[in-house]
């Protein structure tokens, strides 16, 4: 069990990072901090995606002059690239939302951003 846990270190890190990020989303009151938590969550999922494609003693999936024997899985890396760009797009948009909200409401405390309720 312990060795298995040790071998799965990246996955465990992903679990811890997800926990931290979700904790930030649930407990933090500052909107920017929440968005940082969201970015952390994105990074954690990206790390997860790359980690599932790793093969022991594999090399990067790029053919060069060096003889390659075993390569890591390329698909997940492609997916992660997509996910990273999507992540930065989302962050940028939500941060600009936060800036506009601050301009209109004068606060970025999520407990006060609730004109829409009931």
């Amino acid at each position: 069990m312990i060795t298995r846990l040790l071998l799965a270190m990246p996955f465990l890190t992903v679990a811890v990072l997800l926990l931290l990020a979700l904790g930030a989303l649930l407990f933090k009151r500052n909107l920017i901090k929440m968005l940082m938590g969201l970015s952390l969550m994105e990074s954690a999922v990206n790390l997860f995606l790359v980690a599932i494609g790793y093969r022991q003693d594999g090399v990067a999936p790029i053919f060069t002059n060096v003889p390659q024997t075993l390569m890591v899985l390329p698909t997940v890396q492609a997916l992660t690239l997509t996910a990273i760009v999507i992540g930065v797009a989302t962050s940028a948009m939500m941060l600009s939302f936060a800036m506009v909200i601050y301009k209109k409401y004068g606060t970025v405390d999520v407990r006060n951003i609730r004109k829409l309720n009931g």
């Binding site: 939302f97 936060a98 506009v100 909200i101 209109k104 609730r114 004109k115």
Partner: peptide, 13 residues
């Protein structure tokens, strides 16, 4: 007014 942005933010989040 800001309400619309608030709605959009919630949706995006």
């Amino acid at each position: 007014k800001g309400e619309a942005v608030e709605g959009g933010l919630k949706y995006a989040l």
